[in-house]
């Protein structure tokens, strides 16, 4: 009994003296474990995402009003300028509504003539965004729909007609959506009416960058950017944004969907395999 007490005392002494360094070493071990990109890490993150989703949806309720007050204040601040812009935009839109109706009629009649099979939109799930879990180095959000609701990795997230991002990990009740604005995000796109092939890159801010254009490509401010369908992650023709500024060494793009305006998203399964899941890559390496 005495020796057992002694051992406990020695253990306590060492723990008090060197416990910090032990945890420090464990943290270094975690860094190495993170480098291995083991599938179990992704599973753990998914479980934590479920847990986080539950906690945030409970804790956020009292703060929700605060969020709306902030939104209201910033809207109120911009009201005059926004009104001018809306009037201008309304004139343009009225013209385009008429034009779109004409084109739709023409399109419908041509499709009928050609017996064209319209591609159907895949399975669609609408889900609320419950948490912004990005930091200074990531741009991602948690959506309140997971395996239970039929969400799978690779589902494309849309808001209105604009592209927001794609699902990168799925838990039982929640999924993680990587936004277009994330630093690691690269989307092959078509630019403007001439459909120059380029790549839209995120840089962890609300603005995207357009790169890898072919030599001699003429890009103008206001050019529309849509997904090209290359690399098999996104289907062709999804609205990404418009060219907002052209500088000597970079082209800025404003995304159609701004993250702060989005409460819920449409998750669509376009049936595209996309990039290989991490499990397969690891198995192939073995």
């Amino acid at each position: 009994m005495k020796s057992r007490m002694g051992r406990i005392r020695i253990f306590k002494f060492f723990y008090r003296r060197f416990g910090v360094y032990l945890y420090f070493l464990l943290a270094c071990g975690l860094l190495l474990l993170g480098l291995s990109k083991h599938p179990i890490l992704e599973k753990t993150r998914s479980v934590i995402a479920d847990f986080t989703c539950e906690i945030v949806s409970i804790l956020y309720t009292p703060f929700q009003g605060l969020g709306y007050i902030g939104e209201y204040m910033s809207d109120f601040w911009d009201i005059y300028n926004e009104n001018l812009l809306l009037k201008e935009e309304n004139d343009k839109l009225l013209y385009w509504v008429n034009r779109a109706q004409q084109l739709k009629q023409e399109n419908d009649s041509l499709k009928k003539e050609l017996n064209f099979a319209v591609p159907s939109l895949g399975k669609t799930i609408t889900a609320y965004i419950v948490a912004d879990n990005g930091g200074a180095f990531t741009r991602s959000v948690l959506v309140q729909a997971g395996e239970k609701e039929g969400v799978r990795k690779g589902f494309v997230a849309l808001y209105n007609a604009g592209l927001l991002g794609r699902i990168v990990s799925v838990g039982e009740k929640a999924s993680r959506l990587l936004l277009l604005t994330d630093y690691a995000s690269r989307v092959p796109v078509y630019v403007g009416e001439r459909r120059y092939l380029g790549i839209v890159e995120g840089n962890n801010s609300s603005i995207l960058h357009l790169t890898s254009l072919p030599e001699g490509a003429i890009v103008r401010e206001g050019d529309y950017i849509t997904t090209s369908g290359h690399a098999g992650v996104f289907p062709m023709g999804l609205a990404v944004g418009t060219v907002s500024k052209i500088r000597k060494d970079e082209i800025e793009v404003i995304p159609f969907v701004s993250q702060e305006k989005v409460d819920f998203v449409r998750l669509v399964d376009f049936g595209i395999g996309g990039l290989l899941p991490s499990e397969i890559i690891i198995e192939e390496k073995k």
Binding site: I55, Y60, G67, S74, D132, G135, S206, Q259
Partner: peptide, 18 residues
């Protein structure tokens, strides 16, 4: 967990504060 709240303010989205 406060950092996770979706406040819908561009200020918080761009500059998440730990």
């Amino acid at each position: 967990f406060l950092g996770l709240f979706p406040f819908r303010l561009s200020f918080f989205i761009e500059l998440f504060l730990p």
